[in-house]
Amino acid sequence: MQPSDLRIALFSGNYNYVRDGANQALNRLVDYLLRQGAQVRVYSPTVPDPAFKATGTLVSVPSVAIPGRPEYRVPIALTARVRRDLAEFAPNIVHISSPDIVAHRAVSWARRRNVTAIASIHTRFETYLAYYHLEILEPFVRAIMRRLYRRCDAIVAPAESTAAVLRAQRMNRDISIWTRGVDREQFHPGRRDMEWRRSIGIDDDALVVSFLGRLVMEKGLDQFADAIDTLAERKVKYCVLVIGDGPAREWFEQRLPDANFIGQQIGPDLARSLASCDVLLNPSITEAFGNVTLEAMACGLPVVAADATGATNLVRDGKTGILVDPFDADGFADALEAYARDPQLRARHGKAGLSFARTMDWDAINSAVVRTYQRVIEKRARLARRTRRS
């Protein structure tokens, strides 16, 4: 099977209506697939004014807004219209990227027709529950996810650390790696702009600690704020730069009244903002892959991160950054203070991280997904031939 033989039906809970690392990875994958001659059709909720233009052909799936988080939508049905479109497209592989209702229906559609199905993991959804005091539901949610993923022919995970968790949770026996790349034309140390820093009131000798991402509690905003409080108590000269927006922005602004909040940035403005910082603090434990961590490394920044999936595959503790127990605010502050007191350590770890980021080429990474598609399609075809012979 050649890449040009592939007909991929990709199901996403959020392909382009809110910008995040997961859907940007999916759009990059679709771009790569199209360049290889594959045919792709994307099924996802849509909105009148999406965050960015979708790559490829996008078919709208019925959805409803999530209560309390109206910016996100949940796909709710594989309607007759969508099923007709799917049947006419006649995919030879179904790819789901979020464990929602439509993903379950899509896998059922594939199973009834002996079409190969795979799932890609982008977020540790079950870990979100703790931030909303719903830990009691975690076993139930994990069981639903297990039922879905075990009906797939394979899973692709963004890092070995995430794959290890999935194996331990018995999600599937066939788990391979689809890691993430970084746009090195956009993110690089040359984007650093001291004049821009000064223009927003940051002194040259202050350690600029960056938060980059969507402002939601599950990104570890409470741990970030606690670490900064501890750093302030130690009389370290620092400044916090918050890059991003979201429903928890008001809460975060109240917790960090002296921080610089510059909102969501894109393109060169995002790269300039990040490269003009001195260290990224990423306390999140919900990531399957830390896209922002890799972007910071590509800008030459050391990273202080939670010792959890999403970071352990990127940050080499004591080499490219510092890993900290996820609930140890003092430990995060210790790491930040070490970088503030020792600029040479900061530079050394930043340089090592930059060297690693230069190896993360998107096309080489996305080719692994094509190989997985080809392998599982051929595997299902072999099983079908054996069944017919028996």
Score class of each variant (00 low, 15 high):
A308R: 01
F11T: 02
G267R: 10
L301F: 00
E253C: 07
S367G: 01
A357H: 04
L166S: 12
I266W: 05
L256G: 12
A296D: 09
E160H: 09
A248K: 11
N366K: 00
P268M: 15
D100F: 06
V376K: 07
F332E: 03
S199Y: 12
V156L: 13
L354R: 11
R198Q: 13
S276Q: 05
I136Y: 09
R7V: 06
A225Q: 08
A335K: 02
M360K: 10
P91N: 11
V18H: 03
T286Q: 08
G263Y: 09
K237D: 12
A248S: 14
A54N: 07
T286F: 02
A157W: 05
D342T: 12
V165M: 11
N114P: 01
L33I: 09
T116Y: 04
N172W: 00
V236M: 08
V107M: 08
V376R: 12
E378H: 02
A103C: 04
V82L: 10
D31Q: 14
L301H: 01
R150S: 15
R386E: 05
C239R: 15
G21Y: 07
V242F: 12
G318W: 14
M194V: 14
Q254V: 01
A164K: 13
L314D: 06
Q24N: 13
E160I: 05
E295R: 10
S4L: 06
A333I: 06
Y32M: 05
R358H: 04
D258H: 13
D204T: 08
R388E: 06
G246L: 10
E233C: 07
Y339F: 15
Q39G: 09
I93L: 14
A106W: 05
A368C: 04
R167P: 13
G300D: 02
L34T: 09
R358A: 12
L10A: 05
F211Y: 13
V279Q: 03
E378G: 04
L301K: 02
L274R: 06
P302G: 07
Q2G: 12
R255L: 07
V141D: 02
I155E: 05
D325H: 15
N16F: 12
T79I: 06
R173D: 14
V216F: 00
V242N: 06
